[in-house]
Simulated scan of single mutants.
Amino acid sequence: MFLFRDPRDVVVSFVYYVMNKLRTDPSYPYLSNKCSSQKDRYQAMIEGFQDGNYRRPGITEWYERFMRWSKDEGALVLKFEDLVGSNRKNECERIIKYLMPNVKLQSDILSLINVMEENIKPENSLTFRQGKVGCWRDEFDEELKRITKELCGPLLIDLGYETTNRWL
């Protein structure tokens, strides 16, 4: 299974996660000591950075490491936004059919979907902050949008988050 999320939201989510919950991450010293603002942290994650022996790739390079999985005919490709949105039941059904191809009865599938939904407990998750789609819009200023377009434009189009590089 290949699950992906809008790279802009990944940047925002990752920065909040590292700064507030995972201070043992190798990115933390750079983000906390060498970035003077949240904007600087976002820019560092978008562009990538080198801190001593530690190199953090930019978000496009980071995604490109996994993109071949999205083209694998044997992979189930899922969008985070579909899993948290109104399409959740359909996506859960796709997961069930992928993992358990012998389940044929719709009643069994619906029971499994109910179990899956009952097990969604954001309050128990270390990585959950908001789970909102498009939160980058509240965080990125015009300069960050410009940088993101330059460095991530083709990726955003390939992933289906934008149709052109003329977004916002």
Results as ranks from 00 to 15, higher is better:
108 D>F: 10
43 Q>V: 08
113 I>P: 00
37 S>W: 04
140 F>C: 00
82 D>I: 02
136 W>K: 05
109 I>G: 00
124 N>T: 13
142 E>V: 05
74 G>E: 13
19 M>K: 15
122 P>Q: 04
69 W>V: 13
152 C>D: 05
78 L>G: 03
148 T>F: 00
106 Q>M: 07
17 Y>R: 06
163 T>L: 11
51 D>E: 13
64 E>F: 04
166 R>I: 08
101 P>E: 12
84 V>D: 00
136 W>A: 02
19 M>G: 12
152 C>E: 05
42 Y>T: 01
48 G>K: 06
34 K>D: 11
124 N>M: 10
144 L>A: 03
15 V>Q: 06
156 L>E: 05
14 F>K: 12
39 K>W: 04
160 G>K: 07
141 D>G: 03
101 P>I: 12
130 Q>W: 07
35 C>L: 05
43 Q>I: 05
51 D>Q: 12
123 E>I: 08
71 K>P: 00
10 V>G: 03
102 N>D: 13
32 S>G: 07
40 D>K: 04
29 P>Y: 12
84 V>T: 06
57 P>Q: 11
21 K>R: 15
160 G>L: 10
136 W>Q: 03
115 V>Y: 03
100 M>H: 13
107 S>F: 12
161 Y>N: 05
113 I>G: 00
159 L>V: 05
108 D>W: 13
109 I>V: 07
38 Q>D: 06
75 A>P: 03
134 G>P: 03
17 Y>V: 06
110 L>I: 11
113 I>Q: 00
122 P>S: 07
48 G>T: 04
136 W>L: 06
10 V>K: 04
42 Y>H: 04
61 E>G: 10
30 Y>C: 09
111 S>A: 13
6 D>W: 01
27 S>M: 15
112 L>K: 05
1 M>T: 12
74 G>L: 10
111 S>P: 00
39 K>M: 02
55 R>E: 14
97 K>F: 01
72 D>M: 06
164 T>V: 07
30 Y>P: 05
139 E>R: 15
161 Y>F: 14
19 M>E: 13
37 S>Q: 13
64 E>V: 06
129 R>F: 07
134 G>C: 11
49 F>N: 06
17 Y>D: 11
93 E>M: 00
11 V>T: 09
6 D>V: 08
70 S>W: 08
101 P>D: 08
5 R>Y: 09
143 E>A: 10
4 F>R: 04
28 Y>E: 13
88 R>V: 08
72 D>G: 09
3 L>R: 03
145 K>E: 08
75 A>F: 05
36 S>E: 02
3 L>D: 02
127 T>Y: 10
39 K>V: 02
6 D>E: 09
139 E>K: 14
17 Y>P: 03
27 S>L: 09
79 K>Q: 15
132 K>W: 09
45 M>P: 00
127 T>Q: 10
159 L>T: 01
162 E>W: 03
59 I>W: 08
162 E>A: 10
109 I>H: 01
163 T>H: 14
124 N>F: 10
58 G>V: 07
100 M>D: 11
76 L>T: 01
7 P>Y: 06
166 R>W: 10
6 D>I: 02
101 P>N: 14
59 I>K: 09
121 K>F: 01
132 K>I: 09
157 I>T: 11
122 P>G: 07
89 K>A: 12
150 E>Y: 09
7 P>L: 13
139 E>L: 03
66 F>Q: 07
89 K>D: 13
90 N>S: 14
137 R>G: 01
133 V>I: 15
